[in-house]
Design a protein around this nucleic acid. Structure first.
Lengths: 214, 214
DNA sequence: TATATTCTGTTGCTTTTGCAACTTTTTTGT
DNA sequence: ACAAAAAAGTTGCAAAAGCAACAGAATATA
């Protein structure tokens, strides 16, 4: 794998990159679809970077409710330092939806210049800044959707984000309907009912996972 | 003002600090309670750092709905690069709730080493990393609250965050009831009704803005 | 200190959402 | 190509949340 292709090692030579990976106790691991990648219940001082595949931060409430807190695409970063705190009656984990590969890095050695003082570490921190800034942005988008009051408003808000992202009024939903409802934190059948109404009212077109805003 | 007291200029000498502030076209501005500090409608390539006072990121929907997307305490960072995208039927702004002071910095010169190549710039980026990591964490907490399904669950989730933050089961709400409802994205009277029920059921004690978890 | 304004808390009614149980369609695995 | 499993979609009913119009309390202002 060419690590310099990942955002984190952007503008770092492959050679420096390998040296730093050792220095930072980096581990690459592969997971099968459905496997748990990371649990926030037993937090470790590491960050994970999704190299490829699709994953999600999921909260399982003990009453059976499931919520998708965050949808992770390749190059997303996650870890205890950056994220969620499980409560007494829930557990939170990163679960992969497709097979995927993850790079785990020790957070301390990532943010602090090591004794070997690799000059390229500065570049690394700059890259990390970019990753975090992206994460902030995606979490803000998430807050925008979830702070909408009705199911219809949540749907429209998210659709507009997807449309803006693709720069097109037609786009694909990255979820099954089940996951989509858990992502919006609403009841699945109520959501499908609302989608039906919006379709009938001529607000959207939707077939399978393809949506068009009208 | 001693800038080295702000998180951003932590471990930077006052002298270096002043030099960099010039280099990064930093501006300190004061605002009165209720004033708009920053609007996401006409985004500028700057970040703001709240030096003191209380502010909030607020979305005004044209149908009259108001939502508090984020609550900003001193040392919080905000700006176009990190945050919210207003839609066609809403506008988003940072509004201060008390008098406050804000430091505005050009984002480009903050993240890129300038020609003068101040050695201390590395420290600055490290500090910025910390600010962003804090922001990520607070946004994640926000997502956790908003992804709760019922008003009661939202209330309890937020109360537990406040309790964890103060390390005490008694804490103060940082809002009026009106703002609190807008923060949880729920109807005010429904929220107060629910608080009443929770009190009656012995889940919490509440008088004015002081809450105790039982 | 009187008056206006904002905030808090109540209540009945309406609308939306959630829930459960079900059928139909699609996907997966052998 | 078939069976089994998972996902998508429907519906009636129940529960929760929203809304509007209040009254009383607290706060600000003149």
């Amino acid at each position: 794998m060419d690590y310099s292709e990942t955002l984190l090692f952007q503008n770092v030579s492959e050679k420096d990159c390998q040296r730093m990976l050792t220095c930072m106790k980096a581990q690459k691991r592969s997971f099968y679809a459905g496997e748990e990648i990371y649990s926030f219940d037993t937090p470790r001082k590491i960050v994970g970077i999704l190299l490829n595949g699709q994953a999600a931060v999921i909260r399982y409430e003990y009453n059976g409710t499931r919520s998708i807190l965050e949808n992770l695409s390749p190059k997303s970063i996650f870890g205890e330092h950056l994220s969620f705190v499980p409560s007494d009656d829930s557990c939170i984990a990163v679960v992969c939806q497709t097979d995927c590969q993850v790079l785990f890095i020790d957070y301390q050695s990532l943010t602090r210049t090591c004794q070997n003082a690799c000059s390229c570490h500065t570049q690394l921190i700059r890259n990390l800044l970019q990753l975090l800034s992206d994460k902030t942005r995606s979490l803000s988008e998430r807050v925008e959707v979830l702070s909408q009051r009705s199911i219809r408003e949540k749907l429209m808000c998210y659709f507009m984000q997807l449309a803006a992202g693709k720069n097109s009024s037609t786009f694909e939903l990255p979820f099954t309907m089940i996951d989509f409802a858990d992502f919006l934190s609403v009841n699945r059948s109520a959501m499908i009912r609302e989608l039906g109404k919006m379709k009938k009212e001529g607000l959207i077109q939707i077939s399978r996972r393809t949506v068009t805003l009208l």
